[in-house]
């Protein structure tokens, strides 16, 4: 039970990642492949963010303002901000690559009249 509580988060992230991989490999529709890719991406992001989580810590904004006492900052009070920074930019770059992927899929649709992998392969021959 203890190991379950300590590790079940990671197992669910792996499950999400595998749903993404399955979508990318087994689905023949290009849009489904793109959705699978996005799920895979969020699974990795959620894994990174969870590395930064700390029990009993608050959000990574140092307490400040006129009323706040200028006490020494205790590291254990704030979650690890470094994975947040990495993943914040990854999300925005992710929407950029999503746009490119959709543009390529639409371009393929214009050329071959289909989004299904097997039909496109037939028309290629």
């Amino acid at each position: 039970m203890e190991i379950l509580l300590a590790k079940y988060n990671y197992w669910i992230y792996v499950a999400l990642m595998m749903i993404g991989i399955y979508g990318m490999i087994a689905k023949t529709n290009l849009m489904k492949k793109i959705i699978g890719m996005s799920i895979f991406q969020t699974a990795i992001i959620v894994f990174y963010v969870s590395i930064g989580a700390k029990k009993g810590a608050t959000i990574p904004i140092i307490e400040h303002g006129h009323g706040a006492a200028h006490a020494a900052v205790r590291v254990a009070d704030y979650v690890n901000p470094l994975p947040h920074v990495l993943m914040l930019t990854a999300i925005v770059v992710g929407v950029g690559t999503l746009g490119v992927a959709l543009a390529i899929a639409m371009s393929i649709y214009k050329e071959y009249g289909s989004l299904e992998e097997d039909e496109i392969l037939e028309r290629l021959e």
Partner: peptide
């Protein structure tokens, strides 16, 4: 998880 900036980005983007 306390990642407010990431959550904010995902709410707007994702």
């Amino acid at each position: 998880m306390g990642a407010v900036d990431v959550a904010f980005t995902e709410a707007a983007v994702g």
